[in-house]
């Protein structure tokens, strides 16, 4: 049954769009490499990374209806933990006074995910008591706490942030080159998309979506919505945290701006722009947003004005985001 479901998805317009979008994202850096334009490889990595952050949020927001305005907390936390491990490997000292630093991604990345997951569990337990706008604002409040913490925490540079001179190695593989690093980002994105598609097709996903639409209905069939939503929230946070890890590895730099409320807003924009609850939505959203930002920014200092007008136009005249525009409205709307 799972098979036939995914087959029908692949034959739908949205399925075609998904495959095409991913193929373009994969092909772009290969073409760029051939043309000697290596800058576009790092741009593609960036798209993949920020899309991944959006994929994470999309699980909470699209499937679970949990409008988190604080996913920057997980994005930044993941980035900071991974960054701190590399930092300690460079400069000595221990993470939280317990762990020595390492350049080994197979150790530091899972640690970053674990820390973000624990934070999400804690934040989720408190935040999920609320709903609607209260949930939006309480998640924002937690993100702000982490932001100010990072800003005034001297070990990791406070506002200056920390500079990492080397990328972590993945097992025995070096990912310091642009193309290998892109493949890692793209691979992680693909895995996350598969996971989300599997999750939404599973019993858990059905429960999560029912929890969004009608909590009482879920309760009447004997499922307590709270642990379902909490699980969804934690997984969502960990995916976004992985994006934070990758961005820090790509930039060789971690700073409190990873945690700012603009970042939460930006991740949310990727999701809304692409189409809420649509699998490929965040990928399209992130790609279009970054391209707009880069292209307009190259032309005028007033790029924020133009970007604002374009985004406003999209939200007013293209309901359902880019996926809605290109592949029709979602079935369950």
């Amino acid at each position: 049954m799972d098979n036939s479901r995914s087959n029908s998805f692949l034959r739908s317009r949205e399925g075609v769009l998904t495959v095409v979008a991913l193929a373009v994202l994969l092909a772009a850096p290969l073409v760029a490499q051939a043309a000697g334009q290596t800058y576009f490889i790092s741009l593609a990595s960036r798209v993949a990374i920020l899309a991944l952050a959006g994929v994470g949020l999309n699980l909470a927001l699209g499937s679970g209806g949990m409008i988190s305005f604080g996913h920057a907390a997980f994005f930044g936390l993941g980035g900071y933990v991974a960054g701190a491990m590399v930092f300690h490997a460079q400069e000595g000292g221990q993470f939280l006074g317990l762990l020595a630093g390492t350049q080994q991604a197979l150790l530091s990345w899972p640690l970053a995910l674990a820390v973000a997951g624990i934070a999400a569990l804690f934040i989720g337990v408190i935040s999920l008591r609320t709903s609607g706008v209260y949930f939006i604002m309480i998640t924002l409040a937690f993100a702000q706490m982490f932001y100010y913490l990072a800003l005034s925490f001297p070990t990791y540079g406070g506002e200056d942030g920390m500079t990492l001179y080397e990328r972590s190695t993945l097992g025995g593989l070096s990912v310091s080159g642009d193309l290998p690093f892109f493949f890692v980002c793209f691979g992680v994105l693909l895995l996350a998309l598969l996971l989300c598609s599997r999750l939404t097709g599973s019993r858990f996903g059905a429960a999560l979506m029912t929890a969004r639409q009608n909590e009482t209905r879920l309760a009447t069939v004997g499922i307590n919505p709270f642990p379902v939503k909490l699980t969804g929230f934690v997984i969502s946070a960990m995916i976004t945290a992985l994006a934070g890890v990758l961005l820090v590895e790509q930039n060789g730099f971690a700073s409190p701006s990873l945690l700012s409320w603009h970042r939460s807003g930006e991740i949310m924009i990727f999701v809304i722009l692409g189409g809420v609850g649509r699998l490929i939505g965040p990928v399209l959203g992130a790609a279009v947003f970054i391209l707009l930002e880069t292209v307009i920014g190259g032309y005028t200092d007033r790029w924020q004005l133009v970007l604002g007008l374009v985004l406003l136009g999209i939200v007013l005249f293209a309901r359902g985001g880019l996926v809605g525009l290109l592949a029709g409205r979602a079935r369950h709307d």
């Binding site: 927001l61 409008i67 305005f69 609607g132 706008v133 939006i136 807003g265 949310m268 924009i269 809304i272 722009l273 809420v276 924020q304 004005l305 970007l307 604002g308 007008l309 985004l311 406003l312 939200v315 007013l316 309901r319």
Partner: peptide, 13 residues
Amino acid sequence: HLDQVLATFSLIL
């Protein structure tokens, strides 16, 4: 609320 967030965020810019 999501569309409202995106639209009013654009207005800030």
